[in-house]
């Protein structure tokens, strides 16, 4: 037999990895990319005649319960109907046993790339708010993302923000269902098979809460996502990755140092904004915001010029904020007072 040329070898590697869609309604167009959990392909849904993204979980020889677990995961993600979460269309199994999903094809760029082009601080914070809203919704439905990072947030052509890659998400009892006494979902960890055992580190180090980085699966909850959101906020404010949560107090010091050195629109970041980021990224999860909703509330308060829960202001700061918020009114009053003074001075009887 003739030896395989390098070109042929490359082609065969691709061929061996291609999903076999011969018995499905999908037609393969091309590969879009690959990640830790699998490969993503652009395919055509030949029935609906639309292009969708197909993700194949690339775990060969999966353990027997994996398919069932993946199906369950798909069903749960399918419940996350929110404008900020990529909708899942279909789930199935390839003839070789690999599980696949199809989901909306998202065109745009990752937050990592997109953030380089946004200058105004308020716009960065508005995008951040939209990310938080999607995550808050998932939390209400009992789903913890566990791998939030700028790479996993897409900003579409019309400015829509989408939180992607729920592959290593964790399912907890959904608070809304618990309150409503509905069909509760038992606390479980439904990411792919053996990778979720306690002690196994899942996620991306710079955006991973300390408890997650230590592999304490049981300790990972909504506050771990709050940490990751804080890390995304840090990324948006400082335009770089946050320090790695390796050891205290070095981590907190570095965080404070970086935030103090950051500038937005040629001005240092305000203390309340730095405090919001610091609180979201607190080393100890009990010191963080309890919920993403609380984090959103603080961001909203900051944007509206109100006091934020993460920062206790002194009187001077309250006055300054008040004056800044009502600067138009303050200007009018001041003008009135000046005119009044001038009148008293010039038109004294």
């Amino acid at each position: 037999m003739k030896p395989l040329s390098d070109g042929l070898l490359r082609r065969l590697r691709r061929v061996a990895d291609l999903p076999d869609l011969s018995d499905s309604k999908y037609r393969l167009i091309r590969k879009l990319g690959s990640g830790g959990m699998g490969n993503v392909y652009l395919v055509e849904d030949t029935v609906l005649r639309r292009e969708v993204a197909l993700k194949v979980i690339n775990i060969p020889d999966p353990p027997p319960d994996l398919t069932a677990r993946m199906l369950r995961e798909a069903r749960i993600i399918a419940r996350l109907e929110h404008p900020g979460i990529v909708p899942l269309h279909d789930v199935g199994e390839l003839p070789d046993g690999r599980v696949y999903y199809t989901m909306k094809r998202v065109q745009g760029s990752s937050l990592e790339r997109y953030s380089k082009s946004i200058e105004p601080l308020s716009e960065r914070l508005r995008i951040f708010q939209r990310i938080c809203q999607a995550v808050a919704f998932a939390h209400v439905r009992g789903v913890i993302h566990r791998d939030l990072k700028p790479e996993n947030v897409m900003v579409g052509g019309f400015g829509e923000v989408l939180v992607m890659d729920w592959g290593i998400a964790k399912l907890q009892e959904a608070p809304d269902e618990k309150a409503a006494g509905g069909e509760g979902v038992a606390s479980d960890d439904f990411s792919s098979g053996p990778q979720t055992r306690s002690g196994t580190v899942l996620g991306t180090p710079a955006f991973m809460a300390p408890e997650q980085a230590r592999g304490q699966v049981e300790a990972v909850d909504a506050r771990s996502d709050v940490y990751a959101l804080g890390a995304i906020l840090f990324f948006l404010l400082c335009r770089k990755n946050p320090p790695l949560p390796e050891a205290e107090p070095a981590f907190t010091k570095q965080l404070a140092w970086d935030l103090a050195a950051a500038r937005a629109e040629d001005r240092p970041l305000s203390r309340p904004l730095r405090a919001i980021c610091t609180r979201a990224m607190a080393w100890d999860n009990s010191a963080r915001y309890d919920t993403v909703t609380a984090l959103i509330a603080d961001i909203e308060a900051f944007l509206d010029g109100r006091a934020v829960s993460a920062y206790r202001e002194n009187l001077l700061e309250i006055a300054r904020r008040f004056l800044f918020k009502y600067r138009f009114l303050a200007g009018l009053v001041l003008t009135y007072l000046i005119i009044r003074l001038l009148m008293i001075f010039f038109f004294r009887p």
């Binding site: 590697r13 990319g33 020889d61």
Partner: peptide
């Protein structure tokens, strides 16, 4: 080792 080899052998870059 098997899984890591599969990722390495079949983990080719997108075209």
């Amino acid at each position: 080792e098997f899984r890591s080899e599969v990722r390495e052998v079949l983990g080719v870059d997108p075209e």
